[in-house]
Computed example of a mutant assay.
Amino acid sequence: MSTLRFRNAVPSDAVRCHEIESSAYEGDEAATLAKIKTRIAQYPQGFLILEDAGHIVGFINSGCAQEVVMSDEAFKELVGHSAEAPNVVIMSVVVDTAQQGKGYSKLLMREFVQRMTALHKETIHLMCKERHVPLYERMGYRYVKPSPSDHGGMAWHEMVMDLPKA
């Protein structure tokens, strides 16, 4: 019997999500606790949690925009976010380091895509490191370009998925 469950984030999840994010991302890549709280408060339907036996093991968080500018640092605090906008911008796809290698990121992404399709979104955008480009291509994203963003002092690559009409 599976003990996995998907749900949207609530404010009390912020500390655990910050712990996971801080342990999984390098340097200044990780969102601050304040940013995570803002993302949960402003767009809970775009903040998907995966639990195993009642414990948070991973999550995806996002915002929505009319026009996507992936290098816009202010958007990471949801400045310019509109829940009704057709384009989703993923800010984090993260699994607890102790839980990696179990396929959780793939499960999270599949559920996230289904939920965004059901919300009638048109595209999902994300940035990733070069080593993750093939992974996201296998999940249905297409490569766009190297990103002008140097978030966290890292090199990033922009990817997009066109969603089917619900």
Rank of each mutant, 00 (worst) to 15 (best):
H125Q: 07
A30T: 05
I49S: 02
S71L: 00
M139G: 06
E77T: 05
K102V: 00
C128L: 13
W156E: 01
A53T: 04
P44C: 03
T38Q: 14
V95F: 11
E111S: 09
A166L: 13
A34K: 13
V79C: 05
E19C: 03
M91A: 05
A83Y: 03
S149Q: 12
V160K: 13
L33W: 00
E51R: 10
C64L: 11
R115I: 00
V144S: 06
V94K: 11
R16M: 12
F6V: 10
T123C: 08
V160E: 15
E122Y: 00
L126P: 08
K129A: 11
F112T: 10
L163S: 05
G63C: 05
V93Q: 07
K121V: 03
D150N: 12
Q99E: 15
S2D: 15
L126A: 04
H55E: 15
Q99L: 02
D96C: 03
K35W: 03
S149E: 06
Q114H: 14
Y25W: 14
K106V: 06
V10Q: 13
K106W: 07
L33D: 08
M116F: 02
Y136P: 02
V10P: 03
D28V: 01
M139F: 15
S105T: 14
P164A: 11
N61Y: 09
G27N: 08
S71C: 10
Q42A: 11
Q42T: 07
E73M: 01
H157G: 04
W156C: 06
M139P: 03
K76S: 07
M91Q: 03
S23L: 10
E122F: 03
V95Y: 12
V113S: 06
R131D: 14
L107Y: 08
A9G: 12
E122D: 13
Y141S: 00
G152K: 04
M139L: 15
V144G: 02
Q45K: 11
L163D: 09
R39V: 01
F75H: 07
H55G: 01
L107G: 03
I20A: 09
R110H: 09
Y143A: 02
R138L: 09
I40E: 10
E122V: 03
H120E: 09
G152M: 02
I36Y: 07
F75R: 08
A9V: 00
W156S: 04
Q66V: 13
D72K: 02
V69W: 12
K165E: 15
I56V: 15
A31Q: 11
Y141W: 13
A118H: 05
A118M: 04
T3Y: 00
R16S: 08
S2Y: 14
L48R: 04
W156N: 06
I36A: 06
P86F: 06
P11H: 07
Q42F: 05
I49Q: 09
T3I: 00
R131F: 12
I49E: 10
D72A: 04
R7N: 12
V10A: 11
V15S: 13
A155K: 07
D162H: 11
A53R: 09
E51P: 02
D13E: 05
V113L: 11
L33Q: 12
S147T: 05
E158S: 08
P148H: 02
E77I: 00
S22V: 03
E122A: 05
F75S: 06
Q42C: 04
S149V: 00
D72G: 03
R131S: 15
K102N: 15
V144Q: 04
I36R: 08
G63S: 05
L108T: 07
